[in-house]
Amino acid sequence: MGGLTTHILDLTHGCPASQVSIELFELNGPEKRLLNSARTNSDGRLDAPLLSSDLVRKGEYELLFYIGDYFKEKGLQLSEPAFLEKVSVRIGLDPSSLHYHVPLLVSPWGYQVYRGS
């Protein structure tokens, strides 16, 4: 699978984070353009890439993970507003690379991202 993919692991419960809303934006200076939105499946993954390899253009992109909603639906008592309501990850893409995978490891109080395989 080429293009841009992601998955989310819930470190608090030790499981994949299902039904998390994700938005993908293309950034052009101060402007943001919504390219796609999706929800993770029961395995914490998307059923299709957020951006297929033929649509990747060189530039900066933003992944926006709606993680606060996920933890509220799991029944966690969070402060209002939640410490992590949304997690924003800005990445640079280049079409010469066939595949970008951006895993998110998350709890209500912290997260880690990296370029996976």
Rank of each mutant, 00 (worst) to 15 (best):
M1N: 13
M1A: 09
G3H: 05
L4P: 04
L4M: 07
T5E: 07
T5W: 05
H7W: 07
H7V: 12
H7K: 12
I8C: 02
I8V: 04
D10K: 01
D10Q: 03
L11E: 08
L11D: 07
L11H: 06
L11S: 07
T12G: 06
T12R: 04
H13D: 04
H13N: 02
C15I: 11
A17Q: 04
A17I: 02
A17M: 05
S18L: 11
S18V: 11
S18N: 10
S18C: 09
Q19P: 12
V20Q: 02
S21C: 14
S21M: 13
I22N: 04
E23I: 08
L24H: 08
L24C: 09
E26F: 11
L27V: 15
L27P: 06
N28K: 15
G29V: 15
G29C: 09
G29L: 09
P30L: 14
P30V: 13
E31S: 15
E31V: 15
K32V: 15
K32R: 14
R33V: 14
R33D: 12
R33E: 13
L34V: 13
L35F: 11
S37L: 12
A38G: 11
A38C: 14
T40F: 01
S42K: 14
S42L: 14
D43R: 08
D43A: 10
D43I: 07
G44Q: 02
R45I: 12
R45D: 11
L46E: 04
P49S: 11
P49E: 05
P49I: 10
L51H: 03
L51R: 02
S52K: 10
S52V: 13
S52R: 13
D54W: 06
D54Q: 05
L55Q: 08
R57V: 11
Y61W: 08
E62V: 10
L63S: 00
L64T: 04
L64P: 00
F65H: 01
F65G: 00
I67S: 00
G68W: 01
D69L: 05
D69E: 12
F71I: 00
F71G: 01
F71L: 00
K72F: 01
K72T: 05
E73Y: 09
K74I: 10
K74Y: 02
K74W: 04
G75L: 06
L76E: 02
Q77A: 06
L78R: 03
L78M: 01
S79P: 04
E80R: 10
E80K: 09
P81E: 00
F83K: 10
F83Y: 10
F83R: 09
E85V: 05
V87R: 04
V87T: 03
V87Q: 00
S88C: 03
V89H: 12
R90E: 10
G92D: 05
G92Q: 04
D94E: 12
S97Y: 13
L98D: 08
Y100R: 09
V102T: 15
V102P: 07
V102C: 13
V102I: 15
P103D: 07
L104K: 08
V106N: 00
S107A: 05
P108S: 03
W109R: 06
G110K: 13
Y111H: 04
Y111C: 01
Y111E: 05
Q112P: 07
Q112S: 08
V113T: 09
V113K: 03
Y114S: 12
Y114D: 12
R115C: 11
R115D: 14
G116L: 03
G116E: 06
S117A: 13
